[in-house]
Design a protein around this nucleic acid. Structure first.
Lengths: 124, 124
DNA sequence: CTCTCACATGAAATCTTCTTCATATGAAAT
DNA sequence: ATTTCATATGAAGAAGATTTCATGTGAGAG
């Protein structure tokens, strides 16, 4: 039986394989926020936040609700909590100090350091 | 506490966000195989399989062992089984017929149909 | 009804990843 | 020692994704 070779499964992972979207998920874990609040928390442009919220919505990783003039986004904790616990366990077992994972081939070093400072966090 | 905005977490998802690598994981769920067997099962070139096995190894999604002249790859079921169960549950809840997920903006339709036929499976 | 605020969308440029083809490596067989 | 088999690696072109800037939209306030 095929479980992971579906386009839905690819989209699931592809949507989370992005530092901006992971950061959005992370700050929504704390509390629901509107677009401007997310943008401010991430120090990113509003249009970038909107662009990245779209695939998160399509995958039901976040939900949204209109409140007056704003739109408030919240995270799907039922999915995200067990998912990140699974990853945390996996990392603690196979990537204890995070060193192996801290290089990426195509990515320019300068840009990566920038990403580390802003969106990523070094887990040492 | 930061749990998902690490590069390790990004790499986790990025590695699985690829049809070839998902297909490799899937056929290894059945039984361990060497590179040539994987290539044959997927109808892909050997070098492509090797290239894609590398990130899977780095993330400890697959393991390998030398056996004589071959190298036999096996999947990390401890991780993959709960991971795909989580996704299956999520999909059953939010993507019941798979329709919403079956389009992708940037992807050329022709290429997508090809991918559907070979690597992906339409879950209807 | 018009203005404005909050957000979404489009398109182009840039950046990243994937695939392919050619070649390298290394261990086992002869 | 040489050949051969199994797999890995490198580099370049193609394909795909992300970001940015400009603009569009629509609901609520005045």
């Amino acid at each position: 039986m095929k479980i992971c070779t579906t386009y839905a499964c690819h989209k699931f992972f592809a949507t989370l394989a992005n530092p901006t979207r992971l950061a959005i998920v992370e700050i929504l874990m704390d509390s629901p926020k509107n677009v401007a609040q997310i943008a401010q928390a991430l120090q990113q442009e509003q249009s970038m936040v909107s662009h990245n919220l779209k695939p998160l919505m399509e995958c039901a990783f976040v939900f949204s609700e209109k409140k007056g003039r704003e739109r408030v986004y919240s995270v799907n904790k039922e999915l995200m909590e067990p998912l990140f616990h699974l990853i945390a366990f996996h990392e603690s077992k196979y990537c204890p100090n995070g060193r192996i994972c801290l290089t990426r081939k195509g990515m320019k070093l300068e840009r990566m350091k920038e990403a580390q400072k802003t969106l990523y966090v070094n887990h040492e």
